[in-house]
Design a protein around this nucleic acid. Structure first.
Lengths: 201, 201
DNA sequence: ACGCAAATATGCGTGGTGCGCAATTTTATG
DNA sequence: CATAAAATTGCGCACCACGCATATTTGCGT
């Protein structure tokens, strides 16, 4: 990867992290695009060259994570489908994988702030949009693996959609509970339940 | 239902239909809130008393449809869960159930216009948000039926999420195909596939 | 090492939008 | 019919997405 792309990825990351951090501290609409740009050391106009809204900047974290799932799926062509999916999903939600930055002044305040931000309607919408985008990639990966055609068959999209459903449900539950149930347990349960056809309990 | 609520529902319907119709005719961003309000016979300010964006006004149709699914689910407590779900979902997507208004000047132009509108990012986001809202209602219905607790158990949310996944996937495929495959077949296939645990083909 | 072309960042201007506030009209109730 | 509650309306403001023109940085061939 050349200097060009690295700088681009750098400012993108700086912008999205700044957006999340500031929003978690002050609340989403007490943060202006100007503030985020300043925190990332770029011009306000540049922010909109990368993201078209504050919500999108924040949701990028989720998008990247889910795109990594599709990537991981392609690296496990040997296992049975649902085993591969489980093993592709879980590592992306290990604590410490992404938050290993400097935004940890107080872990309690931090998670509370994040929870508040994620309740914001604008952010929720963007998270869903991110999930939809990732779904396409996952569907493509599943299609390759199973020899189905994304244009023709429902199957790959259905699997991808169900996986995202499991993730969203598990994460929603994770945010809802206090003290938080570990995400890994919720995710394995949810995926197993779906792979079992969601039988009535 | 009193006069008050009926008028309220009336203007809400008028606004959302006007929004969809105008957007399908001219394209979403060639329509200003002012135009929609005028077409519905209310003040521009009133539009924002009902919806906070054009996309939300349009997505209301989808939301209402999905809420009716939750309602229908509660009216079928006898059947096995997935039979009830299938029977609750299908009628809401019968052609002619909702479009029986006056917006049918040319069916070809109409569906093409709708397809264009649904490609708009703003609308997609709102559709996803509508799905998420409906999901909560469906989850509640499933929880009642299965004796699970939405606050505590993953199961009802997981089922609701999977149902919405099936609907979204089926509708996306329905819009993608030309000539369109009947939605009913896609929906039954998708729901059956999920109830079977999405086995690799 | 140098220079050219492409990609990227920036500044400015503009139309549109979401929403708070206060006044007015319409509806429900006793 | 009177009074309270709710909905609609008009006004106004702050914010934001985005197009366009310009300056700067990066990649690459020589």
């Amino acid at each position: 990867m050349g200097l060009r792309e690295r700088k681009k990825a750098g400012t993108r990351a700086a912008l999205s992290w700044a957006a999340l951090r500031l929003a978690a501290e002050r609340g989403l609409d007490n943060v202006k695009v100007e503030d985020i740009a300043e925190a990332a050391g770029v011009s306000p106009r540049t922010f909109n060259n990368y993201f078209s809204s504050k919500g999108e900047a924040i949701a990028t974290h989720h998008l990247d994570r889910c795109l990594r799932i599709a990537e991981a799926l392609r690296e496990r062509p040997a296992e049975p489908l649902w085993d591969a999916i489980t093993h592709a999903v879980l590592p992306q939600f290990e604590p410490g994988t992404a938050v290993a930055d400097q935004p940890a002044p107080d872990p309690a305040k931090w998670t509370a702030g994040v929870r508040t931000v994620l309740d914001e309607p604008a952010v929720q919408g963007e998270l869903l949009r991110a999930g939809a985008r990732a779904e396409a990639e996952i569907a493509a990966a599943v299609a390759d693996r199973t020899g189905t055609d994304p244009e023709q068959d429902l199957y790959p999209h259905l699997v991808a959609s169900a996986v995202m459903a499991a993730i969203n449900t598990a994460m929603a539950h994770h945010l809802r509970t206090d003290p938080p149930v570990p995400a890994s347990r919720l995710l394995t349960d949810a995926l197993a339940c779906i792979a079992a056809g969601l039988p009535a309990p």
